[in-house]
Structure formats: structure tokens, C-alpha cells
Computed example of a mutant assay.
Amino acid sequence: MRPAHLALAVLVAAVWGVNFTVIEVGLGHFPPLLFSALRFLAAAVPAVFFVGRPKVAWKWILGVGLVLGVAKFGLLFIGMDAGMPAGLSSLVLQIQAVFTALIAFAVLGERPTRLRALGMAVALGGVALAAVDEGTAGPLGAFALVIGAAACWGVSNVLTRKASPPDSLNFMVWVSTVPVLPLLALSLLTEGPSRDLDALRGLDWQGVGIILYVAWITTVFGFGAWGWLLRRHPASTVAPFSLLVPVFGMSAATLFLGESVSPLRWGAAALLVGGVALTSLAPAKSRTRTGTPSAVSEPDAVPRGDRREKIAP
């Protein structure tokens, strides 16, 4: 990988990591569901008018939009609003790699190798340790919501693999159009029209900047740059850089929000990142239609388009 491409990969990881701190600040301006709706509205408009028509079937756009946009981000924003720290959220959300592997096994017949199974066990141990740490410092209900968000992310990853979009940016922009109305409806029902109107009336330049960051920088730029890198380098070369996301996420939360990181949380981080590394980078066996395990490793066992997708946090 060229130095410029290496720097771009690190920059994307940094952008995605800092995003959790920006979300934390944004939740002081907006109710969580309204905030999530505004994020996707800004990501979709005006970009949707420039990326061309959708290049996959609408069923995949609707499916990923509802699971990723409404369920995953709705749970994440509500969990953080309920007290889940930004740095810990950036770490725990990486358990999505384990959910992706488990769902891919159940739906796609991709049998994990022993090394990948070990990675899943190690990552789950890290989540358990993080839960113990959070149980002494914050609400476990908020922790559970972020775990639920990670599970929804795993489902959306498998749906994206099935969709196999040839243009990652086009796909993400059209996916961003789907959650806006459902999230707005849920916000009106659960957060109330008066709270939403108060947030919109009180919109200031900081609030605008927050929405633009989470929409244009983390979604449009981050996802577009990540897809650009994956079109030029093997997935096994690009994917490890995503492990830097919780490093930047926890560092930014400590620097800008004053979040403390206990020794127990550092231990959880080491286990979770190490386990996710094994889960993400170890090859997976896949099954043929007759149920016979294939000798082809995962990166070569799926169509090229399947390898390009990674949804930004």
C-alpha cells in the first residue's frame, strides 16, 4: 500500500473513531432518534441527486436501510443517550464482527475455522469484561442497547453481502434515504413533537456542524474512501485498519470528554480488539450447495462486490 493510501486508511479510522465523541456532543443538542434521522437526511440530500440510480434491487436498499439505519443507529444513539460512554461504545460496537460471522454461518453456510471460532470466544470474553466494568460505573441497560446495535450491524453486513453492490458510495447514499421517515415517525411517537421542535428551533452552528460531520464526513467521505481503498487493495490489507476505530474512539473520548479508562476496560479492549482481529482476518470455510465444505477461503469464495462493503459507524 502506498504511503498516501496508508494515510487515507488511518484517516478514515480516525474519522470513524472521533465520530463517537461527536455523537455524544450531538446528543446534547438533539433527541437520539431525531438526531439519527437528521444524520441520514443530510447524508442522502443532496448526494442522492448526483450518484445516479440505484445499482441493486430495492429490496436490498430497503432491508439494509431499515436494519442499519433504523435499528442499528437507533439503538446506538438511544444507548449513548441513556448513559453508554462514547469511548466504550466505539469499542463494544466492534463485536459486530462476531455477529456477522455467526449470522453468515446461519444464513450463508460459511463455517468458521477453529482460529475464527477462537477469535469469537476471545472477543466475547472482552465484551463480558467490559460489561463487568460498565456494571460498576454505568447503566447495563444502555450497554445492552449497544450490543443490540452491534447485532443489527451484523445483520446489515450479511444483507450487504447478499446485495453485492458494485458501487459502495451509490449504495450507501440510497440506503441513507430509507431511515429518514421511519426515524422521524418514531421520534414523534416516543420523543414527542414538542421536544423535536425545541431541538430544531434551538439549532445553532455547533449543531449544524455536528450533523454535517456525522453525515458528510463519517458517512459520505468515510464510506466512499473506504470503498475506494477496497477497490485498489485486497480486503485483507484494508480491513485491519478498522481495528484502529476503537483506539481513536477511546482516545478522543478521553481527550475531549474527559472519560476515564479503567485497567479493566483496557483489558476488555485488548481482548475485544484481539478477538475481532482473529474473527475478521482468519479465513472462513464455506459450504457448497450439497453441504460439502469448500476449500476456498472467504475472500475468494464470494463475488468481488461482496468484498467492498463496510458500513461506516
Score class of each variant (00 low, 15 high):
152 C>I: 04
59 K>C: 10
291 G>W: 05
302 V>L: 15
19 N>F: 07
252 A>C: 08
14 A>E: 05
161 R>I: 12
108 L>I: 10
252 A>M: 04
150 A>L: 10
160 T>M: 11
239 A>M: 14
308 R>Y: 06
15 V>K: 01
305 G>P: 07
221 F>H: 02
75 L>K: 00
269 A>Q: 01
62 L>Y: 10
56 V>W: 03
14 A>N: 01
87 G>W: 08
78 I>L: 14
30 F>R: 04
192 G>R: 11
116 R>Y: 03
163 A>F: 07
258 G>M: 14
119 G>Y: 07
199 A>L: 02
27 L>H: 07
233 H>T: 04
297 S>R: 15
260 S>I: 14
155 V>K: 01
139 P>Q: 09
33 L>Q: 12
26 G>A: 07
9 A>D: 05
165 P>C: 13
272 L>A: 02
76 L>Y: 06
9 A>W: 02
307 R>K: 11
7 A>K: 05
136 T>L: 14
143 F>L: 08
162 K>M: 14
45 V>Q: 01
129 L>R: 07
276 V>M: 04
298 E>C: 13
79 G>P: 08
53 R>Y: 00
151 A>G: 11
313 P>R: 01
249 G>D: 11
146 V>Y: 08
207 G>L: 05
250 M>C: 09
305 G>M: 06
10 V>D: 05
103 I>D: 03
1 M>I: 10
186 L>D: 13
232 R>Q: 11
256 F>I: 06
310 K>H: 10
149 A>Y: 00
40 F>K: 04
63 G>H: 06
260 S>V: 15
300 D>W: 13
183 L>C: 02
196 D>G: 03
63 G>V: 12
212 L>S: 02
227 G>R: 01
92 V>I: 11
215 A>Q: 04
207 G>T: 07
10 V>T: 10
27 L>N: 07
143 F>S: 09
279 T>K: 04
297 S>W: 15
116 R>L: 11
54 P>L: 09
3 P>K: 12
